[in-house]
Amino acid sequence: MLEELLSNPLFHHISAAQLNKDFNGLTYRVKAYAKGEILASQGDVCNRLVILIKGSVRGEMIDYSGRLIKIEDITAPRAIAPLFLFGAANRYPVEVTANEPTEAIVIPKESILSLFRRNETFLENYMNLSANYAHTLADKLFFLSFKTIRQKLASYLLRLSAQGDRFLMDRSQQELADYFGISRPSLARELGHMQHDGLILVDRKQMTILNKEALKILIK
């Protein structure tokens, strides 16, 4: 079962033989979750690393009004909240629920610390993944700082247009709506409005910026 971990970025450049050697004597377990089962509740102490080996989960945050906001989907072979395993406030920032029948390898924090000591490559992979995750969170906070959907879209599209005014979107409409924390119909409606106003041209996943200066003015 440990070989399932080799496809995870945390274990890149680590052989199956080395993996089995590193895990020798360490505590870990394989756990199955039914669709709709909660893997972690928002605010729970994050004292283990959960690495998906099958299926997918969603992270949702409960705001102060009690509304459930979808943050992201996480699919195998990704790890869940690796950034929050350490630090004084090591609690899950979201509620994690299985989208479908899911399996994961659950590794206690103490075993992760042992892996750090045993394998420098794993430690470097973990640090790189955490840094990338922190960058993604910073990006998300940046987009959330804009008040309107049009502003969020303008900023996002300007980033993608760095190499040219015609490009393919890197996310589906549903993925982009989840990323912005809005509904897909609201996103699609605003894309239609922006196209009607002559700012962009949408052809499925292909996007063409028609008025870049107007988009820049939106986010000033």
Rank of each mutant, 00 (worst) to 15 (best):
E213S: 14
D73A: 14
R78L: 13
R204W: 08
E3I: 10
R48T: 03
R204Q: 12
N90E: 12
A76C: 11
N24A: 15
M207H: 08
G164R: 05
L157Q: 01
I112M: 08
H12L: 14
S155R: 10
M169E: 11
D178V: 14
D203R: 15
K212F: 12
L144N: 09
L26E: 10
K31I: 07
L5E: 03
K152T: 05
A34C: 03
Y92E: 04
I107L: 03
T136L: 09
S15R: 01
I112D: 00
I53V: 15
I105K: 04
Q174E: 15
Y64P: 00
I112Q: 01
V94C: 08
K216Y: 13
K35Y: 08
L6E: 02
G36L: 02
L49M: 07
H196S: 14
A188F: 04
L49S: 01
N24K: 13
I69T: 12
F122I: 00
E124S: 10
K152G: 04
F146E: 02
G36W: 08
A76H: 08
K54T: 11
M61F: 09
L19T: 03
Q163C: 13
I51A: 04
S41D: 11
L123V: 07
G66P: 08
P93E: 04
L26Q: 08
L157R: 00
G36P: 06
Q151G: 14
G59L: 06
M1W: 08
D197E: 13
H12F: 14
G55Q: 05
H12P: 00
D178G: 02
T27F: 13
F11C: 01
K147E: 14
N119R: 01
K220I: 10
L123I: 05
F23K: 07
R91L: 10
P185M: 11
Q163I: 14
Y64M: 11
I74W: 01
K216V: 12
E95F: 09
N125T: 09
Q151N: 10
K205F: 12
D170Q: 12
Y33C: 04
T27Y: 15
T136A: 11
D197F: 08
S130H: 00
A16Y: 05
E72F: 06
I38L: 11
P93L: 03
L141C: 02
S130R: 06
L123R: 15
E120K: 12
F143P: 00
Y126K: 06
E100A: 09
A134P: 00
M207W: 09
R166M: 11
D170P: 01
Q163L: 15
F142P: 00
A98Y: 06
L19V: 03
E175N: 07
E110C: 02
A32R: 13
E60K: 11
N8T: 00
L5F: 04
S41L: 13
D44Y: 12
L215P: 05
S114P: 03
N132H: 13
S183G: 12
D22L: 04
N125D: 10
P185D: 07
T208H: 11
G181T: 02
S56L: 07
L5A: 05
L10S: 02
F86R: 10
R117C: 07
A98L: 02
L49F: 03
K152P: 03
D63Y: 09
E37D: 12
E103Q: 10
A40D: 02
K140Y: 10
D139W: 12
R118E: 06
S145L: 06
